[in-house]
Design a protein around this nucleic acid. Structure first.
Lengths: 131, 131
DNA sequence: CTAGGTGCAAAGCGTTTGCTCGGGG
DNA sequence: CCCCGAGCAAACGCTTTGCACCTAG
């Protein structure tokens, strides 16, 4: 991934604004520094940054996707009135991966929003392909 | 909410198919009984049923929204390969509401996917309006 | 009879993509 | 000099909506 001023700016916006901004919000803030930046560029960069694990996509079930600069394991609370997203850290949630793995045969890759991972069927398929 | 054959059919489809179907999937199944049913009707009814608490919307962060006939507290795991959605029940997750309420001043209304509720600010606003 | 529901088609909205030009290495 | 990235606009896919007709109560 080559350096670009715009991507760097977008990354900083998400990192420095713990408001879990939407692409549109990132766009508005980015325009202060780069008035000619396009929404397409913002989307492209947000997705690239997410693919490279530098930020995370979160779906709040209220229309558009949101982005989070915190990539450590934590949960979110979404207010059903103002729709803002807040961070949650609860000790109880730690080491959940192993528990789920044992109980459901489901390898958790991350837990955020809904719990994502790979189901038993897909694991079996993957092994079958490799062997 | 008046009775309608189509809505009843749609409700049953979601209840009887624990696959957490998308609107499109519900549409396909509904067409077996009502060949002329429209996708618009399916969306309209799914949303109405969700508003009336008879089913739940879940966002799987893979494109379209999914619907769940189970309205009790439980979590979901989404397979990142086949994108199917599975139910999770873990004892550890019970009584989480109170813990969050105490620690973050956030009244959880339900926990599903991301944790939804009402934030302190909105609670204060609501009280201010009532008084 | 009439309020609410259906079917159909068009519009809406968030997001993605093809293309050409510009900037980084 | 070459390639990745930006900007712009058109396309896309899921979902919603306006309208005329129909159905339940």
């Amino acid at each position: 991934m080559n350096y670009s001023q715009q991507r760097n700016c977008i990354k900083n916006i998400v990192m420095e604004n713990p408001i879990h901004p939407t692409a549109e919000q990132v766009y508005e803030i980015a325009r202060r520094s780069y008035p000619k930046i396009s929404l397409g560029t913002v989307y492209r960069n947000l997705n690239q940054l997410a693919e490279h694990g530098m930020l995370k996509k979160i779906c709040s079930s209220y229309g558009s996707v949101r982005f989070d600069g915190r990539i450590d394991a934590h949960f979110h609370m979404v207010c059903s009135e103002c729709e803002r997203v807040f961070d949650v850290e609860l000790d109880e949630m730690l080491r959940l991966n192993d528990k789920i793995r044992t109980k459901y045969d489901f390898a958790v890759s991350e837990y955020e929003i809904s719990i994502k991972g790979t189901c038993g069927d897909c694991l079996a398929k993957r092994e079958a392909t490799v062997v």
